[in-house]
Amino acid sequence: MNKFEKVSGIAAPMPLVNIDTDMIIPKIFLKTIKRSGLGVNLFDEMRYDRQGNENPDFVLNKPAYREAEILIAGDNFGCGSSREHAPWALADFGIKVIVSTSFADIFYNNCFKNGMLPIILPQEQVDVLMKDAEKGANARMEVDLEKQTISTSEGETFSFDIDPFRKHCLLEGLDDIGLTFEKVAEIDAFEARAAQARPWV
């Protein structure tokens, strides 16, 4: 996994609440057996008409936001299915950071596995970022994971919380499975104990 570095990029506003994983990547694109190439179908049903023409009103189709790297979203972003195709599609499009007041649990986990940073902030601060994002491509935000800050184009800065272990993994680009293999002796020991205590499992 790539190391997460500072992001200085365009933020796109998506104020709709409860943006679900079916909106992020409709199920017809889940038939792939690969992880890559889903960016073109990100938000497919909102982004294109049935003939595949772009809907000019959709935020990521507007010239100002085509290169967006940050999404500022409404409450409960990523609710619904466990499909990791959702963060794969976002990452493939070029999104590196998503800001909301809340995220669905599985989506939130999935982001970290793909080198993406979901940031949770209070409503008032999301409102400020949303307004800034609505200014378009001239408004670039700065995200500094090391310092745990996000700044608007006007320099207003908010701090965010993040689990220290997850932060460490993002900054170093660590592979979870590799880390867990370092504890294989503990897993072996647990398995032996469990086989004694609950032999029916």
Binding site: S82, E84, N109, N110, D163, I177, I187
Partner: peptide, 21 residues
């Protein structure tokens, strides 16, 4: 019992564990 993403599916296949809080 809960849902997991594909990266976690791979993690469970390889290690029979999940990293959780």
């Amino acid at each position: 019992a809960h849902g997991i993403g594909t990266s976690e599916v791979e993690h469970v296949l390889a290690t029979q564990t999940l990293i959780q809080k």
